[in-house]
Simulated assay, not measured.
Amino acid sequence: MAEPLDTAAGQRRLRTTLGPLGAGDVGLVLPHEHLLVDFRPAGSAGPAEVDPGEFASVVEPLLAAAAAAGVTALVECTPPGLGRRVDLVLDVSRRTGVPVVVATGVYREPWVPDWVYAASDDELEAWMHRELTEGVDGSGVLAGFVKISAAEDGIRPVEERVVRAAARAAARTGALVGSHTTDGRVVLGQIDLAVAEGLAPERFLSIHTQTITDPGLRRAIVERGAWIEFDDVGQSGRDGHARTLALVLDSLEAGQAGRLLLSHDAGWFDPALPGGGTPRPFTDLTGSFLPALRAAGVGDDVLDDLCVRNPFRAFAR
């Protein structure tokens, strides 16, 4: 049976594979990672054919290493249509003891599932609401947030419908809506749509904000009240490390410490590759990036905001 929603003041919880967790139950949280992603088009051999043992042999060491590095929870950002498999995620989470937040929602075209086009707006909202409050795919695991996306050149009709349905479902449950959208103007348009449907702007997260090169657009997103996320830690070697470090320091200088999240966008098992491919670890943040921020003069209280308090505030409901 799914856990009942907490309604009393002060009962905000992360909804995870290992149950609801309060602020005192978690420390450092990685807000954007993946355990399984399948970018192959619909109709190809899909994630349902993943061998559970092969998946576990790749992913369990990643989670165990993250836990050993101080990670206490991880947000798995794979939505339906890209290979979401909550049953496999639940298994490795239990084996390693690492709580994982899973997503509901819909990605952008061409990965929108066929049934979404045929569903009514009310049916889309009801489906997301059900996954947030009753559980995903019969697993008993409640989705912890809503993952959406949009094309870089603008919001397409089906993507607008998804934004509106996501905003309504999130507003009813207190959930976060996180958007993989790399153009800041499109992000602001999504926020406008979501707010029009009743979502508070502080329940909206701009994912991959490091790809928005205009600091004015990044500032505008924060000024609307939304979250921003630099989630490319460890992706591009030393040069990328320096760029992300500069972005974080600029954001802190601009007074954005209270709205900023950090992660890797790492992992993952790819069923299109032999043996699931070669995943990236979840340990660069703790191993090298946070020490670099400390060396640049960022204090531990600010780092706790970025990696402990902010992720909980963003994803708890």
Rank of each mutant, 00 (worst) to 15 (best):
A48N: 08
A68Q: 13
L35H: 09
V89E: 00
T182Q: 14
D232Q: 14
I207N: 13
D183C: 14
R168W: 10
E3H: 15
A103Y: 07
D38G: 10
D305H: 10
L142P: 02
G276Y: 06
T283P: 04
A103H: 06
T278I: 11
L293I: 14
I155E: 03
A56H: 04
R219A: 15
A272F: 07
Q210E: 12
D91N: 12
A220K: 03
C77Y: 01
D250L: 06
A175L: 09
H32M: 00
A314T: 02
G297K: 08
R238M: 01
A68E: 15
V101H: 03
T104Q: 06
D232C: 11
V98Y: 00
V162C: 13
T173P: 01
T278S: 11
A42V: 08
A254W: 04
A126R: 15
P279H: 12
G189I: 10
A151L: 10
Q256K: 02
D232E: 12
L285G: 03
A68I: 06
F39K: 05
A64N: 08
A119F: 02
L193N: 02
E54L: 15
Y107A: 12
R218L: 13
G22T: 02
F55Y: 15
V106D: 05
Y107R: 00
R85K: 08
G267F: 02
C77H: 06
R317L: 11
D304F: 04
V26Y: 07
E159T: 07
R313M: 00
E253N: 11
V136A: 10
I148R: 14
A242R: 14
G27K: 07
V146Y: 00
R85S: 04
L30G: 00
L273S: 11
D284L: 04
S263V: 05
W268H: 13
V233Y: 00
P31A: 04
S263P: 04
L36H: 01
F230W: 10
Q11I: 00
Y117E: 10
S44E: 15
V195T: 14
H264V: 04
L205I: 09
A171Q: 03
V98G: 02
A292R: 02
F145E: 09
E109Q: 14
V116H: 08
D122Q: 13
R238I: 13
G19T: 10
V26K: 08
P47A: 13
A9R: 11
V308K: 01
V186P: 01
L30C: 00
D231L: 03
V116E: 05
R259L: 08
A196G: 12
W111V: 09
L306A: 09
R161Q: 09
L262Q: 02
G198A: 10
L249I: 01
D284G: 03
V302I: 15
L205S: 11
L261C: 10
S288R: 15
V163F: 13
T17P: 01
I148V: 15
A2T: 13
A118C: 01
D301F: 02
G287E: 12
P79G: 12
T286M: 11
F312K: 05
E33A: 05
V177E: 09
A169H: 01
A73P: 00
G105A: 12
G277Y: 05
G277N: 08
H264R: 05
A272K: 06
